[in-house]
Write a protein that binds this DNA or RNA. Structure first.
Lengths: 327, 327
DNA sequence: TGTTGCATTGAAAACGTTTTCATATTAAAT
DNA sequence: ATTTAATATGAAAACGTTTTCAATGCAACA
């Protein structure tokens, strides 16, 4: 049916081995190369990846598992990874867990079965904990989500520092009751919470914290209640863009003016962050760089499996907009 | 190195064939099944997909090529496709062309090399034209972007109707000079333009059209110029969310009030469409359904390659918000 | 001219599965 | 008890490549 290397060889009048060498970059005479390339063109031959990978034991493929594709942060990561892998001559096998640990586990198995050359993962909180129980035949790089000590290479933003920066900024604007809502299901939420607490303490203020799973409806309900209570904060930090959105809507629902009655500051610079009025103050993450560095880390690790562990911590950029500026 | 089916067979005390049968669902005795499953668990065996696919000539994989992952429309499509494929027991091989025809071509070759079981594509305008020159050994389904007559199964929204609906709505609100900005590089932009023109004509109005490649900066410049000119429209239809965003910013930059000085209506309901003030009137596309139906179309086509061509045309929902309501 | 060495080539083995085929076993039917 | 049919099993072939290995040809060198 489909044309194989043997057919090409026959037409070119050479052995299958020679065809393979032409295509795979072995040493061949110009004469043979030309004959083979002509035959390839004539037949429309396409190599069978399954066969190639089986025999050569090289997949030239990087796996990528992200937790939530719909989150623009991860779409940006995905794009960056794909583009960097492409430049390095590797393919990307992409999977989206939707924050579901079961699916995550399935996809990890999946990557093993595909025998990827390396794997980049943004794990769920649960997945992160159980990762150490796995044994992989390929290097694994954690992106965005990792604890302090991991047995893998890690590319993350400095969530501690970023959270502190937000607190400091809000305080410098004169806000005194700075609350925080943090995602309970991801490690980044936790880290941002810790940074927040430290900063609040070092300013002599009192931390006011809520932790929630990252669902919009629950978050908005909770925030509305908080905003209408007697001891409402005059500024609030949100650990992800979904929460930030909920805060914005909750402020509107309760009639609080931003930034006069309440300041809002969050994580991730999304298209709408600057579109709403006032614009939202956010930490912009170095997404492109994170993706690029993750690929580079995987490749380095493939090349030298025994090199010391790398932990690349990038800093975010605090983009100050109207939502946190007292006028 | 890695444990193979032979190792499992040896430990279980059966032949490799029996192991394969247990894992692949052949007929085996309960005794053998148990022994094999135990051995699999003991060894941590993971099948080698390359070998499996090579021998069985079945990949159980659906390819998906989208034009722009960063566009929330396509992320939603991607998610829907993945989830539907997962339910059908198939894997998804995902690629993003970034509207680049060269990359698109590369990925089409790529899919052939992977020998996917079926392929779902949202092609660039150029890719769409050249698709007929290819010959695929697997079914191909076009999603979102297709012309009237294609030689493939097609899942699209009715762009004509949707555009007409927007025009009709704006007119019913009393707007008289309804302009339109349409993407020049994708077929959907063209179709929406046609629908717009028809609707405008049938209302006895004069079409006022601009076509541009879909880049934010150019679009905003162009719109600002348009909005400041003497013959500016009092309402405008944008054929994609990037343009809609540009229109919003252009209106602000030129000091036009929405919806009093100018109404805005566009395509794709994004998170920020309802967050900005006023909310933007949009056509919400049935993304989840489109993704689901695309997978289902691929699978049906695999099962019966000679069934008549299917063209599924779904209708969008017109979500009316403040940006188009005269107060 | 006769060796040596290097570059090029083809035959055949190998990769880890599934599938075919023939055989052995069991159950059912007479 | 004997035959027939159905089922379970293992040996070996097959999938389409790459890679190894040995052989060939050619140029360079003594």
């Amino acid at each position: 049916m489909a044309v194989g290397i043997k057919d090409v060889a026959k037409i070119a009048g050479v052995s299958p081995a020679s065809v393979s060498r032409v295509l795979g970059g072995g040493s061949v005479s110009d004469k043979v190369r030309e004959k083979v390339l002509n035959a390839v063109k004539a037949t429309g031959y396409r190599p069978n990846m399954a066969a190639r990978r089986l025999r050569s034991n090289r997949t030239e493929t990087i796996g990528l598992i992200v937790a939530d594709l719909v989150n623009p942060f991860f779409t940006a990561i995905t794009q960056a990874v794909e583009s960097a892998a492409y430049k390095a001559g590797m393919r990307v096998m992409f999977c989206n867990t939707g924050e579901d640990p079961e699916r995550e586990e399935m996809y990890l198995r999946f990557m093993q079965e595909e025998r990827v050359s390396g794997l980049i993962v943004a794990p769920t909180a649960q997945g992160l904990k159980s990762l150490s129980k796995w044994s992989f035949d390929f290097p694994l790089v954690l992106i965005d989500r990792a604890r302090d000590k991991e047995k893998f290479d890690v590319i993350v933003m400095n969530n501690h520092t970023a959270a502190r920066e937000l607190v400091t900024h809000l305080h410098s604007q004169g806000y005194q009751r700075i609350g925080g809502l943090f995602g309970a299901t991801s490690i980044t939420g936790e880290q941002r919470k810790e940074g927040y607490i430290e900063a609040i303490r070092s300013l002599g203020l009192k931390p006011e914290i809520k932790s929630l799973p990252s669902t919009a409806i629950v978050a908005q309900k909770e925030l509305e209640a908080w905003f209408s209570s007697a001891d409402r904060p005059d500024a609030i930090i949100l650990s992800n863009s979904l929460f930030t959105r909920s805060a914005l809507m909750a402020a509107r629902a309760t009639g609080l003016q931003i930034p006069d009655d309440i300041a809002i500051a969050g994580f991730d610079d999304e298209p709408w962050s600057s579109l709403v009025d006032p614009g939202i103050t956010v930490i912009r993450q170095p997404v492109e760089m994170m993706g690029k560095e993750a690929v580079s880390a995987v490749i380095q690790r493939i090349e030298s499996p025994n090199a010391p562990l790398r932990r690349l911590m990038l800093s975010g950029e605090c983009v100050i907009r109207g939502s946190s500026r007292k006028r």
